[in-house]
Amino acid sequence: MIRLVLLIALMFGAATALSAQERSSLWPEIPAATGAPHPEGNEYWRRNHMNLMRHDRDQTMRDGNREVEASLKGCFDCHAAADGEGTIVTYESDKHFCRSCHDFVAVKVDCFMCHRSTPEGVDETADEGADHAAILSPRQTLADIGDLVAYLKHSNRTLVVEAGQ
């Protein structure tokens, strides 16, 4: 029992120590945006973007109101993310703006089964298949296993470091 309490305390300590010092390498790297910042602030949009977008999508599609603020097209005006070589990435890539956070919080979005995930004009044909199909992709499975191993190693190391202190 005492061991268990110690272990929990240790893990808790590790977590707080991490957030207090530097952010873990697992923290999402959110791609920088272009254009003017949201006047409401990023916090507002982080918290409400799904409601804003759902509200406005129904306005657009059902009511034909094209003068809405929140749209995927609008998002990618500023939030198109590029990979190391400057190519705009699709949702297939974990560098994609939406995935940078959504992977982190493990919330899967359904948007890009139908919507394009880049600004109009970018050629998406290079990426084969839709993202939901990744369950059968050996490449994706191996990548997932790699991520998991990296995560376990990382958390193990921080624990060891904590314990060593």
Binding site: G64, R66, L72, K73, T90, M113, C114, H115, R116, P119, E120, D123, E124, T125, D127, E128, G129, A130, A133
Partner: peptide
Amino acid sequence: EPVNNQKTHAPRGQGTVESCTLCVHRVDN
């Protein structure tokens, strides 16, 4: 089949049904 490279104004994706929209994105404008 899986779809990519859709038009911004004409989302379309595998497993759903679609048809002529009367180019609603043009008509609305």
